[in-house]
Write a protein that binds this DNA or RNA. Structure first.
Length: 491
RNA sequence: CGGGGUGUAGCACAGCCCGGCUAGUGCGCUACGUUCGGGACGUAGAGGUCGGAGGUUCGAAUCCUCUCACCCCGACCA
Protein backbone atom coordinates (compact mmCIF):
# COMPACT_ATOMS: atom_id res chain seq x y z
CA UNK A 1 0.00 0.00 0.00
CA UNK A 2 1.37 3.33 -0.98
CA UNK A 3 1.59 5.59 2.02
CA UNK A 4 -0.95 8.29 2.30
CA UNK A 5 -3.68 6.62 0.31
CA UNK A 6 -6.74 6.68 2.53
CA UNK A 7 -8.07 3.26 3.36
CA UNK A 8 -11.34 1.76 4.42
CA UNK A 9 -13.24 4.93 4.94
CA UNK A 10 -15.11 7.42 2.89
CA UNK A 11 -11.96 9.41 2.19
CA UNK A 12 -10.93 6.73 -0.23
CA UNK A 13 -13.82 7.62 -2.52
CA UNK A 14 -12.81 11.25 -2.48
CA UNK A 15 -9.19 10.36 -3.14
CA UNK A 16 -10.21 8.12 -6.03
CA UNK A 17 -12.50 10.75 -7.53
CA UNK A 18 -9.86 13.39 -7.28
CA UNK A 19 -7.25 11.18 -8.90
CA UNK A 20 -9.52 10.32 -11.81
CA UNK A 21 -10.07 14.02 -12.41
CA UNK A 22 -6.52 15.17 -11.82
CA UNK A 23 -5.03 12.52 -14.06
CA UNK A 24 -7.40 13.76 -16.75
CA UNK A 25 -9.14 10.41 -17.19
CA UNK A 26 -12.79 11.29 -16.78
CA UNK A 27 -15.34 13.47 -15.04
CA UNK A 28 -18.97 13.39 -14.11
CA UNK A 29 -21.22 14.56 -16.88
CA UNK A 30 -24.09 16.95 -16.30
CA UNK A 31 -26.24 14.05 -17.45
CA UNK A 32 -27.44 12.06 -14.48
CA UNK A 33 -25.12 9.23 -13.51
CA UNK A 34 -23.14 9.47 -16.72
CA UNK A 35 -19.45 10.03 -17.25
CA UNK A 36 -17.34 11.91 -19.74
CA UNK A 37 -14.26 9.86 -20.59
CA UNK A 38 -11.58 12.34 -21.54
CA UNK A 39 -9.03 11.69 -24.29
CA UNK A 40 -6.31 10.48 -21.98
CA UNK A 41 -8.65 8.09 -20.18
CA UNK A 42 -10.07 6.89 -23.45
CA UNK A 43 -6.62 6.21 -24.86
CA UNK A 44 -6.01 3.77 -22.01
CA UNK A 45 -9.36 2.12 -22.67
CA UNK A 46 -8.36 1.81 -26.33
CA UNK A 47 -5.20 -0.01 -25.31
CA UNK A 48 -7.34 -2.42 -23.31
CA UNK A 49 -9.72 -2.86 -26.22
CA UNK A 50 -6.91 -3.63 -28.63
CA UNK A 51 -5.37 -6.24 -26.36
CA UNK A 52 -8.69 -7.91 -25.60
CA UNK A 53 -9.85 -7.81 -29.19
CA UNK A 54 -6.69 -9.59 -30.29
CA UNK A 55 -7.23 -12.25 -27.66
CA UNK A 56 -10.84 -12.73 -28.74
CA UNK A 57 -9.86 -13.10 -32.37
CA UNK A 58 -7.11 -15.53 -31.41
CA UNK A 59 -9.77 -17.71 -29.82
CA UNK A 60 -11.90 -17.68 -32.95
CA UNK A 61 -14.36 -14.89 -32.21
CA UNK A 62 -15.61 -12.23 -34.58
CA UNK A 63 -17.14 -8.82 -33.94
CA UNK A 64 -20.69 -7.81 -34.82
CA UNK A 65 -23.19 -5.19 -33.72
CA UNK A 66 -26.77 -5.43 -32.50
CA UNK A 67 -29.35 -2.71 -31.76
CA UNK A 68 -29.21 -0.39 -28.79
CA UNK A 69 -32.96 -0.81 -28.30
CA UNK A 70 -34.59 -3.96 -27.02
CA UNK A 71 -38.36 -4.36 -27.28
CA UNK A 72 -39.80 -4.69 -23.81
CA UNK A 73 -41.30 -8.06 -24.61
CA UNK A 74 -37.87 -9.50 -25.48
CA UNK A 75 -36.56 -8.73 -22.06
CA UNK A 76 -39.51 -10.46 -20.47
CA UNK A 77 -38.92 -13.80 -22.19
CA UNK A 78 -36.46 -15.14 -19.66
CA UNK A 79 -37.95 -14.99 -16.17
CA UNK A 80 -34.78 -14.59 -14.07
CA UNK A 81 -33.29 -12.22 -16.60
CA UNK A 82 -36.17 -9.76 -16.53
CA UNK A 83 -36.33 -9.89 -12.76
CA UNK A 84 -32.64 -9.08 -12.56
CA UNK A 85 -32.73 -6.10 -14.86
CA UNK A 86 -36.26 -4.69 -14.65
CA UNK A 87 -35.36 -2.35 -11.80
CA UNK A 88 -32.62 -0.54 -13.67
CA UNK A 89 -33.83 0.01 -17.21
CA UNK A 90 -34.13 3.20 -19.22
CA UNK A 91 -37.26 3.01 -21.34
CA UNK A 92 -38.11 4.77 -24.58
CA UNK A 93 -41.82 5.49 -24.72
CA UNK A 94 -42.12 8.19 -27.41
CA UNK A 95 -40.44 9.08 -30.66
CA UNK A 96 -41.21 12.76 -31.11
CA UNK A 97 -41.17 16.13 -29.41
CA UNK A 98 -43.20 19.21 -30.19
CA UNK A 99 -43.41 22.85 -29.18
CA UNK A 100 -45.27 23.21 -25.95
CA UNK A 101 -48.70 24.81 -26.03
CA UNK A 102 -47.63 27.77 -23.90
CA UNK A 103 -44.82 28.48 -26.35
CA UNK A 104 -42.14 27.85 -23.76
CA UNK A 105 -39.77 25.06 -24.74
CA UNK A 106 -40.63 21.64 -26.07
CA UNK A 107 -42.62 18.73 -24.70
CA UNK A 108 -43.07 15.07 -25.50
CA UNK A 109 -45.73 14.69 -28.16
CA UNK A 110 -48.40 12.50 -26.58
CA UNK A 111 -49.50 11.42 -30.05
CA UNK A 112 -46.09 9.91 -30.64
CA UNK A 113 -46.37 7.11 -28.12
CA UNK A 114 -44.71 3.86 -29.11
CA UNK A 115 -46.95 0.87 -29.36
CA UNK A 116 -44.33 -1.19 -27.59
CA UNK A 117 -41.79 0.51 -25.38
CA UNK A 118 -38.12 0.03 -26.15
CA UNK A 119 -35.60 -0.71 -23.45
CA UNK A 120 -32.15 0.75 -23.80
CA UNK A 121 -30.07 -2.44 -23.55
CA UNK A 122 -28.78 -3.22 -20.08
CA UNK A 123 -27.10 -6.23 -21.74
CA UNK A 124 -27.78 -7.83 -25.11
CA UNK A 125 -28.64 -11.48 -24.51
CA UNK A 126 -32.25 -11.04 -25.55
CA UNK A 127 -31.79 -9.05 -28.72
CA UNK A 128 -28.95 -11.31 -29.81
CA UNK A 129 -30.77 -14.57 -29.13
CA UNK A 130 -33.67 -13.17 -31.09
CA UNK A 131 -31.29 -12.99 -34.04
CA UNK A 132 -29.75 -16.36 -33.29
CA UNK A 133 -33.16 -17.93 -33.74
CA UNK A 134 -33.10 -16.78 -37.35
CA UNK A 135 -29.53 -17.83 -37.92
CA UNK A 136 -29.54 -21.33 -36.51
CA UNK A 137 -31.28 -24.33 -38.00
CA UNK A 138 -28.69 -27.06 -37.95
CA UNK A 139 -25.61 -28.18 -36.06
CA UNK A 140 -23.81 -27.04 -39.21
CA UNK A 141 -24.63 -23.43 -38.25
CA UNK A 142 -22.84 -23.86 -34.93
CA UNK A 143 -20.92 -22.68 -33.11
CA UNK A 144 -21.56 -18.96 -33.38
CA UNK A 145 -18.77 -17.04 -31.68
CA UNK A 146 -19.63 -13.37 -31.64
CA UNK A 147 -18.38 -10.41 -29.68
CA UNK A 148 -19.83 -6.92 -29.58
CA UNK A 149 -18.21 -3.67 -28.46
CA UNK A 150 -20.99 -1.46 -27.24
CA UNK A 151 -22.41 0.90 -24.68
CA UNK A 152 -25.11 -0.16 -22.28
CA UNK A 153 -27.34 1.55 -19.77
CA UNK A 154 -28.16 0.43 -16.27
CA UNK A 155 -30.05 3.00 -14.24
CA UNK A 156 -28.08 2.63 -11.04
CA UNK A 157 -29.18 4.48 -7.93
CA UNK A 158 -25.69 5.56 -7.13
CA UNK A 159 -22.79 5.93 -9.47
CA UNK A 160 -19.01 6.15 -9.25
CA UNK A 161 -16.63 7.15 -12.01
CA UNK A 162 -15.72 4.04 -14.04
CA UNK A 163 -16.90 1.60 -11.36
CA UNK A 164 -20.59 2.10 -11.80
CA UNK A 165 -22.08 4.61 -14.19
CA UNK A 166 -25.53 4.77 -15.72
CA UNK A 167 -24.04 4.31 -19.16
CA UNK A 168 -20.85 2.40 -19.72
CA UNK A 169 -18.74 0.91 -22.45
CA UNK A 170 -18.03 -2.78 -22.59
CA UNK A 171 -17.60 -5.82 -24.72
CA UNK A 172 -20.03 -8.67 -24.57
CA UNK A 173 -19.41 -12.04 -26.11
CA UNK A 174 -22.42 -14.17 -26.99
CA UNK A 175 -21.84 -17.68 -28.25
CA UNK A 176 -24.09 -20.53 -29.29
CA UNK A 177 -23.07 -24.18 -29.27
CA UNK A 178 -24.37 -27.63 -30.14
CA UNK A 179 -23.39 -29.27 -26.90
CA UNK A 180 -23.34 -28.39 -23.24
CA UNK A 181 -19.72 -29.43 -22.95
CA UNK A 182 -18.67 -27.12 -25.74
CA UNK A 183 -20.47 -24.21 -24.11
CA UNK A 184 -18.93 -24.95 -20.72
CA UNK A 185 -15.51 -25.13 -22.34
CA UNK A 186 -16.13 -21.78 -24.01
CA UNK A 187 -17.23 -20.23 -20.72
CA UNK A 188 -14.05 -21.34 -19.00
CA UNK A 189 -11.88 -20.46 -21.97
CA UNK A 190 -13.09 -16.87 -21.87
CA UNK A 191 -12.69 -16.74 -18.11
CA UNK A 192 -9.07 -17.71 -18.69
CA UNK A 193 -8.71 -15.07 -21.39
CA UNK A 194 -9.92 -12.45 -18.92
CA UNK A 195 -7.61 -13.69 -16.19
CA UNK A 196 -4.68 -13.66 -18.57
CA UNK A 197 -5.54 -10.15 -19.71
CA UNK A 198 -5.82 -8.89 -16.13
CA UNK A 199 -2.56 -10.45 -15.04
CA UNK A 200 -0.41 -9.96 -18.15
CA UNK A 201 -1.65 -6.57 -19.28
CA UNK A 202 -3.14 -4.88 -16.24
CA UNK A 203 -0.57 -6.39 -13.85
CA UNK A 204 -3.57 -7.23 -11.72
CA UNK A 205 -3.66 -10.60 -9.98
CA UNK A 206 -7.13 -12.11 -10.00
CA UNK A 207 -8.90 -15.04 -8.40
CA UNK A 208 -10.81 -17.18 -10.86
CA UNK A 209 -13.94 -18.56 -9.35
CA UNK A 210 -17.59 -19.37 -9.55
CA UNK A 211 -20.37 -17.20 -8.21
CA UNK A 212 -22.78 -18.47 -5.61
CA UNK A 213 -26.43 -18.96 -6.60
CA UNK A 214 -27.28 -15.65 -5.00
CA UNK A 215 -24.68 -13.72 -6.94
CA UNK A 216 -24.94 -15.25 -10.38
CA UNK A 217 -26.10 -13.52 -13.56
CA UNK A 218 -29.87 -13.47 -14.08
CA UNK A 219 -30.56 -16.10 -16.68
CA UNK A 220 -27.30 -18.01 -16.27
CA UNK A 221 -26.83 -21.59 -15.12
CA UNK A 222 -23.36 -20.82 -13.82
CA UNK A 223 -21.49 -17.54 -13.53
CA UNK A 224 -17.71 -17.50 -13.36
CA UNK A 225 -15.73 -14.40 -12.51
CA UNK A 226 -12.36 -12.91 -11.87
CA UNK A 227 -12.07 -11.04 -8.61
CA UNK A 228 -9.38 -8.51 -7.80
CA UNK A 229 -8.30 -6.80 -4.58
CA UNK A 230 -8.10 -3.02 -4.46
CA UNK A 231 -5.71 -1.02 -2.28
CA UNK A 232 -8.41 -0.11 0.22
CA UNK A 233 -9.20 -3.75 0.92
CA UNK A 234 -12.36 -3.94 -1.13
CA UNK A 235 -12.87 -6.52 -3.83
CA UNK A 236 -13.78 -5.71 -7.39
CA UNK A 237 -15.37 -8.04 -9.88
CA UNK A 238 -13.27 -7.46 -12.96
CA UNK A 239 -14.96 -9.73 -15.45
CA UNK A 240 -17.62 -12.39 -15.77
CA UNK A 241 -18.25 -15.38 -17.99
CA UNK A 242 -21.61 -17.13 -17.94
CA UNK A 243 -22.70 -20.60 -18.91
CA UNK A 244 -26.27 -19.94 -19.98
CA UNK A 245 -27.27 -23.56 -20.47
CA UNK A 246 -30.30 -23.66 -22.75
CA UNK A 247 -32.10 -20.87 -20.91
CA UNK A 248 -32.01 -18.26 -23.65
CA UNK A 249 -32.45 -20.81 -26.41
CA UNK A 250 -35.65 -21.91 -24.71
CA UNK A 251 -36.79 -18.36 -24.10
CA UNK A 252 -36.26 -17.48 -27.76
CA UNK A 253 -37.08 -20.90 -29.15
CA UNK A 254 -33.71 -21.49 -30.75
CA UNK A 255 -33.65 -25.14 -31.75
CA UNK A 256 -31.35 -26.91 -34.14
CA UNK A 257 -31.20 -30.24 -35.93
CA UNK A 258 -28.49 -32.33 -34.31
CA UNK A 259 -26.04 -34.58 -36.09
CA UNK A 260 -28.35 -37.43 -35.09
CA UNK A 261 -31.30 -35.76 -36.74
CA UNK A 262 -33.08 -34.77 -33.53
CA UNK A 263 -34.21 -31.33 -32.46
CA UNK A 264 -32.46 -29.78 -29.48
CA UNK A 265 -32.11 -26.37 -27.90
CA UNK A 266 -28.86 -24.50 -28.45
CA UNK A 267 -26.38 -24.07 -25.58
CA UNK A 268 -25.16 -20.56 -24.86
CA UNK A 269 -22.54 -18.49 -23.13
CA UNK A 270 -22.02 -14.80 -22.57
CA UNK A 271 -19.06 -12.94 -21.12
CA UNK A 272 -18.06 -9.35 -20.64
CA UNK A 273 -15.69 -6.79 -19.25
CA UNK A 274 -16.31 -3.08 -19.09
CA UNK A 275 -14.76 0.32 -18.52
CA UNK A 276 -14.89 -0.76 -14.90
CA UNK A 277 -11.48 -2.24 -15.63
CA UNK A 278 -10.25 1.35 -15.73
CA UNK A 279 -11.37 1.71 -12.15
CA UNK A 280 -9.60 -1.50 -11.25
CA UNK A 281 -6.42 -0.28 -12.87
CA UNK A 282 -6.53 2.97 -10.94
CA UNK A 283 -7.42 1.51 -7.57
CA UNK A 284 -4.96 -1.34 -7.78
CA UNK A 285 -1.84 0.57 -8.70
CA UNK A 286 -1.97 4.27 -7.89
CA UNK A 287 0.05 6.04 -5.22
CA UNK A 288 0.17 9.52 -3.70
CA UNK A 289 1.76 10.97 -6.80
CA UNK A 290 -0.96 9.69 -9.08
CA UNK A 291 -1.59 6.91 -11.50
CA UNK A 292 0.86 4.12 -12.19
CA UNK A 293 0.21 2.49 -15.53
CA UNK A 294 1.49 -0.94 -16.49
CA UNK A 295 3.72 -0.46 -19.55
CA UNK A 296 1.57 -2.76 -21.67
CA UNK A 297 -1.44 -0.47 -21.31
CA UNK A 298 0.27 2.90 -21.17
CA UNK A 299 -0.67 4.99 -24.22
CA UNK A 300 2.72 6.60 -23.82
CA UNK A 301 5.40 4.34 -22.37
CA UNK A 302 8.27 6.76 -22.28
CA UNK A 303 8.22 10.50 -21.98
CA UNK A 304 11.33 12.54 -22.69
CA UNK A 305 11.66 15.82 -20.84
CA UNK A 306 14.30 18.24 -22.08
CA UNK A 307 15.91 20.60 -19.64
CA UNK A 308 16.89 23.85 -21.32
CA UNK A 309 17.27 27.57 -20.78
CA UNK A 310 16.98 28.75 -24.34
CA UNK A 311 16.18 27.76 -27.87
CA UNK A 312 19.75 26.91 -28.65
CA UNK A 313 19.95 24.38 -25.86
CA UNK A 314 16.61 22.91 -26.85
CA UNK A 315 17.84 22.48 -30.41
CA UNK A 316 20.94 20.63 -29.23
CA UNK A 317 18.81 18.36 -27.05
CA UNK A 318 16.33 17.83 -29.86
CA UNK A 319 19.13 16.42 -32.02
CA UNK A 320 20.12 13.94 -29.34
CA UNK A 321 16.50 12.98 -28.65
CA UNK A 322 15.87 12.20 -32.31
CA UNK A 323 18.23 9.24 -32.10
CA UNK A 324 16.72 7.98 -28.83
CA UNK A 325 13.20 8.19 -30.22
CA UNK A 326 14.23 6.29 -33.32
CA UNK A 327 15.86 3.55 -31.27
CA UNK A 328 12.85 3.25 -29.00
CA UNK A 329 10.45 3.08 -31.91
CA UNK A 330 12.55 0.29 -33.38
CA UNK A 331 11.76 -1.64 -30.21
CA UNK A 332 8.06 -0.77 -30.50
CA UNK A 333 8.18 1.53 -27.53
CA UNK A 334 5.75 4.42 -27.68
CA UNK A 335 7.47 7.63 -26.78
CA UNK A 336 6.60 11.28 -26.39
CA UNK A 337 9.07 14.13 -26.50
CA UNK A 338 7.61 16.82 -24.32
CA UNK A 339 9.30 19.86 -25.81
CA UNK A 340 6.74 22.38 -24.63
CA UNK A 341 8.43 25.63 -23.72
CA UNK A 342 5.38 26.70 -21.77
CA UNK A 343 6.00 24.44 -18.78
CA UNK A 344 9.07 23.93 -16.70
CA UNK A 345 10.78 20.58 -16.20
CA UNK A 346 9.65 20.14 -12.59
CA UNK A 347 6.08 20.76 -13.62
CA UNK A 348 6.35 18.23 -16.42
CA UNK A 349 7.87 15.61 -14.12
CA UNK A 350 4.95 15.95 -11.75
CA UNK A 351 2.40 15.99 -14.53
CA UNK A 352 3.61 12.83 -16.25
CA UNK A 353 3.91 11.08 -12.92
CA UNK A 354 0.32 12.01 -12.19
CA UNK A 355 -0.64 10.45 -15.50
CA UNK A 356 1.29 7.29 -14.71
CA UNK A 357 3.76 7.21 -17.60
CA UNK A 358 6.03 4.24 -16.77
CA UNK A 359 9.41 5.69 -17.75
CA UNK A 360 10.76 9.21 -17.98
CA UNK A 361 13.97 10.29 -19.62
CA UNK A 362 15.42 13.68 -18.76
CA UNK A 363 18.07 15.26 -20.87
CA UNK A 364 19.81 18.56 -20.19
CA UNK A 365 23.03 20.43 -21.01
CA UNK A 366 24.88 18.46 -18.36
CA UNK A 367 23.89 15.22 -20.07
CA UNK A 368 24.86 16.50 -23.49
CA UNK A 369 28.28 17.26 -22.12
CA UNK A 370 28.66 13.84 -20.47
CA UNK A 371 26.82 11.81 -23.09
CA UNK A 372 24.31 10.64 -20.50
CA UNK A 373 20.58 10.61 -19.82
CA UNK A 374 18.57 10.33 -16.64
CA UNK A 375 16.14 7.42 -16.58
CA UNK A 376 13.36 7.41 -14.00
CA UNK A 377 10.80 4.66 -13.42
CA UNK A 378 7.32 5.55 -12.21
CA UNK A 379 6.56 2.49 -10.10
CA UNK A 380 9.45 2.78 -7.65
CA UNK A 381 10.45 6.36 -8.51
CA UNK A 382 14.08 5.23 -8.82
CA UNK A 383 16.35 7.29 -11.05
CA UNK A 384 19.63 6.42 -12.68
CA UNK A 385 21.96 8.18 -15.06
CA UNK A 386 23.25 6.10 -17.96
CA UNK A 387 25.15 6.54 -21.23
CA UNK A 388 22.71 7.89 -23.75
CA UNK A 389 23.48 5.31 -26.42
CA UNK A 390 22.44 2.53 -24.04
CA UNK A 391 19.17 4.20 -23.09
CA UNK A 392 16.88 2.51 -25.60
CA UNK A 393 18.02 -1.01 -24.82
CA UNK A 394 17.84 -0.38 -21.10
CA UNK A 395 14.39 1.15 -21.35
CA UNK A 396 13.06 -1.95 -23.09
CA UNK A 397 14.34 -4.09 -20.23
CA UNK A 398 13.08 -1.58 -17.70
CA UNK A 399 9.55 -1.53 -19.14
CA UNK A 400 9.41 -5.28 -18.84
CA UNK A 401 10.68 -5.09 -15.29
CA UNK A 402 8.09 -2.47 -14.34
CA UNK A 403 5.32 -4.63 -15.73
CA UNK A 404 6.52 -7.59 -13.67
CA UNK A 405 7.20 -5.55 -10.57
CA UNK A 406 3.73 -4.04 -10.60
CA UNK A 407 2.18 -7.47 -10.77
CA UNK A 408 4.43 -8.76 -8.03
CA UNK A 409 3.60 -5.88 -5.76
CA UNK A 410 -0.13 -6.26 -6.32
CA UNK A 411 0.12 -10.01 -5.79
CA UNK A 412 1.97 -9.56 -2.52
CA UNK A 413 -0.59 -7.05 -1.38
CA UNK A 414 -3.43 -9.42 -2.18
CA UNK A 415 -1.61 -12.18 -0.36
CA UNK A 416 -1.35 -9.96 2.73
CA UNK A 417 -5.00 -9.05 2.41
CA UNK A 418 -6.26 -12.62 2.27
CA UNK A 419 -7.07 -14.01 5.68
CA UNK A 420 -8.31 -17.50 6.46
CA UNK A 421 -10.75 -17.42 9.37
CA UNK A 422 -12.56 -20.16 11.25
CA UNK A 423 -14.90 -18.33 13.59
CA UNK A 424 -17.55 -15.74 12.90
CA UNK A 425 -16.10 -13.36 15.50
CA UNK A 426 -12.82 -13.47 13.67
CA UNK A 427 -14.67 -13.02 10.40
CA UNK A 428 -16.40 -9.86 11.60
CA UNK A 429 -13.19 -8.50 13.05
CA UNK A 430 -11.19 -8.97 9.87
CA UNK A 431 -13.90 -7.63 7.57
CA UNK A 432 -14.56 -4.70 9.87
CA UNK A 433 -11.02 -3.65 10.62
CA UNK A 434 -8.79 -4.75 7.84
CA UNK A 435 -10.93 -5.76 4.91
CA UNK A 436 -9.53 -7.81 2.11
CA UNK A 437 -10.50 -11.34 1.21
CA UNK A 438 -11.61 -13.62 3.99
CA UNK A 439 -11.31 -17.31 3.21
CA UNK A 440 -13.95 -19.09 5.21
CA UNK A 441 -16.05 -22.20 5.18
CA UNK A 442 -19.64 -21.77 4.07
CA UNK A 443 -22.50 -24.21 4.20
CA UNK A 444 -23.53 -23.46 0.63
CA UNK A 445 -26.96 -22.00 1.45
CA UNK A 446 -28.42 -18.76 0.25
CA UNK A 447 -29.71 -18.03 3.76
CA UNK A 448 -26.26 -18.09 5.33
CA UNK A 449 -24.88 -15.93 2.55
CA UNK A 450 -27.65 -13.39 3.06
CA UNK A 451 -27.26 -13.40 6.85
CA UNK A 452 -23.52 -12.79 6.60
CA UNK A 453 -24.09 -9.99 4.13
CA UNK A 454 -26.64 -8.41 6.43
CA UNK A 455 -24.29 -8.53 9.40
CA UNK A 456 -21.00 -7.61 7.74
CA UNK A 457 -21.74 -6.19 4.27
CA UNK A 458 -19.38 -8.85 2.97
CA UNK A 459 -20.53 -11.01 0.09
CA UNK A 460 -19.20 -14.20 -1.35
CA UNK A 461 -16.95 -12.97 -4.11
CA UNK A 462 -16.43 -16.42 -5.51
CA UNK A 463 -15.80 -20.04 -4.90
CA UNK A 464 -12.22 -20.20 -6.19
CA UNK A 465 -11.70 -22.74 -8.93
CA UNK A 466 -8.46 -23.84 -7.33
CA UNK A 467 -9.90 -24.11 -3.81
CA UNK A 468 -8.45 -27.09 -2.00
CA UNK A 469 -10.97 -29.65 -0.87
CA UNK A 470 -10.79 -29.36 2.87
CA UNK A 471 -13.59 -30.49 5.13
CA UNK A 472 -14.62 -27.89 7.68
CA UNK A 473 -17.61 -26.25 9.28
CA UNK A 474 -19.46 -23.16 8.11
CA UNK A 475 -18.19 -20.08 9.87
CA UNK A 476 -21.76 -18.89 10.43
CA UNK A 477 -24.02 -21.92 10.78
CA UNK A 478 -21.55 -24.59 11.88
CA UNK A 479 -22.85 -26.94 9.23
CA UNK A 480 -20.37 -29.00 7.21
CA UNK A 481 -18.47 -27.45 4.29
CA UNK A 482 -16.13 -28.96 1.74
CA UNK A 483 -13.99 -25.96 0.92
CA UNK A 484 -13.30 -22.34 1.78
CA UNK A 485 -14.86 -19.56 -0.28
CA UNK A 486 -13.75 -15.94 -0.56
CA UNK A 487 -15.75 -13.25 1.18
CA UNK A 488 -15.14 -9.52 0.92
CA UNK A 489 -16.81 -6.18 0.87
CA UNK A 490 -16.95 -5.23 -2.76
CA UNK A 491 -17.42 -2.38 -5.17
C1' C B 1 -35.96 6.35 -2.36
C1' G B 2 -33.98 7.73 3.02
C1' G B 3 -29.91 10.56 5.82
C1' G B 4 -26.12 14.35 5.39
C1' G B 5 -23.77 18.11 2.46
C1' U B 6 -22.67 21.51 -1.57
C1' G B 7 -23.95 25.04 -5.49
C1' U B 8 -20.30 32.31 -5.56
C1' A B 9 -14.58 33.58 -11.82
C1' G B 10 -11.70 27.92 -15.56
C1' C B 11 -10.63 25.15 -10.57
C1' A B 12 -10.67 25.13 -5.00
C1' C B 13 -13.08 27.97 -1.57
C1' A B 14 -14.33 32.45 2.05
C1' G B 15 -18.44 35.67 2.79
C1' C B 16 -24.53 33.79 4.58
C1' C B 17 -25.82 32.73 11.21
C1' C B 18 -26.56 38.80 12.38
C1' G B 19 -29.30 41.85 4.82
C1' G B 20 -26.08 47.62 3.47
C1' C B 21 -21.01 51.17 -0.54
C1' U B 22 -17.62 48.78 -6.17
C1' A B 23 -18.61 40.51 -3.86
C1' G B 24 -13.28 38.57 -1.90
C1' U B 25 -8.86 34.94 -1.40
C1' G B 26 -5.64 31.06 -3.46
C1' C B 27 -4.48 28.33 -7.83
C1' G B 28 -4.95 28.80 -12.96
C1' C B 29 -5.17 32.44 -17.21
C1' U B 30 -2.83 37.09 -20.16
C1' A B 31 1.55 40.57 -20.71
C1' C B 32 6.55 41.89 -19.42
C1' G B 33 11.07 40.84 -16.77
C1' U B 34 14.17 37.52 -13.98
C1' U B 35 14.28 32.18 -13.95
C1' C B 36 14.64 26.92 -15.94
C1' G B 37 18.44 19.51 -13.24
C1' G B 38 11.61 18.23 -9.02
C1' G B 39 5.19 21.51 -9.41
C1' A B 40 9.65 29.23 -10.04
C1' C B 41 9.40 34.53 -8.54
C1' G B 42 8.12 39.71 -9.16
C1' U B 43 5.05 43.50 -11.31
C1' A B 44 0.74 44.69 -13.98
C1' G B 45 -3.93 42.87 -15.84
C1' A B 46 -8.42 40.11 -17.56
C1' G B 47 -12.21 37.20 -15.74
C1' G B 48 -18.83 37.03 -11.81
C1' U B 49 -26.72 36.56 -14.52
C1' C B 50 -23.52 34.53 -6.38
C1' G B 51 -27.52 27.19 -9.66
C1' G B 52 -32.82 28.76 -11.26
C1' A B 53 -37.82 30.90 -10.22
C1' G B 54 -40.81 33.49 -6.97
C1' G B 55 -41.37 36.26 -2.38
C1' U B 56 -40.08 39.67 1.98
C1' U B 57 -37.42 44.49 2.06
C1' C B 58 -35.78 51.21 0.66
C1' G B 59 -31.96 47.43 -0.28
C1' A B 60 -30.84 40.12 -0.94
C1' A B 61 -24.98 35.97 -2.36
C1' U B 62 -27.06 36.63 2.77
C1' C B 63 -33.93 35.89 5.10
C1' C B 64 -38.52 32.82 3.30
C1' U B 65 -40.97 29.37 -0.35
C1' C B 66 -40.48 26.35 -4.42
C1' U B 67 -37.27 24.05 -7.83
C1' C B 68 -32.92 22.00 -10.36
C1' A B 69 -28.18 19.86 -10.20
C1' C B 70 -24.12 17.53 -8.07
C1' C B 71 -21.26 15.06 -4.01
C1' C B 72 -20.87 11.65 0.37
C1' C B 73 -23.32 7.68 3.38
C1' G B 74 -27.19 4.02 3.10
C1' A B 75 -30.83 1.27 0.29
C1' C B 76 -30.04 -0.69 -4.61
C1' C B 77 -26.53 -2.80 -7.92
C1' A B 78 -24.54 -10.15 -10.85
Amino acid sequence: MAKGIPTRNEDYSLWYNELVKKADLAEHSDVRGCMVIKPYGYSIWEKMQQALDTMFKDTGHVNAYFPLFVPKSFLAREADHVEGFAKECAIVTHYRLKNSADGKGIVVDPDAKLEEELIVRPTSETIIWNSYKKWIQSYRDLPILINQWANIVRWEMRTRLFLRTAEFLWQEGHTAHATAQEAVDETLQMLNVYAEFAEKFMALPVVKGKKSEGEKFPGAVDTYCIEAMMQDGKALQAGTSHFLGQNFAKAFDVQFATREGKLDYVWGTSWGVSTRLMGALIMAHSDDDGLILPPKLAPIQVVIVPIFKNDQELQAIREKVKQIVQDLKKHNVSVKFDDRDTQKPGFKFAEWELKGIPVRLALGPRDLENGTVEVARRDTKEKQVMPVDQAAVNVVVLLDDIQKNMFKKAAEFRQQMTTPVDTFDEFKKVIGERGGFVAAHWDGTRETEAAIKELTKATIRCIPLDATEEPGVCVYSGRPSARRVLFAQAY
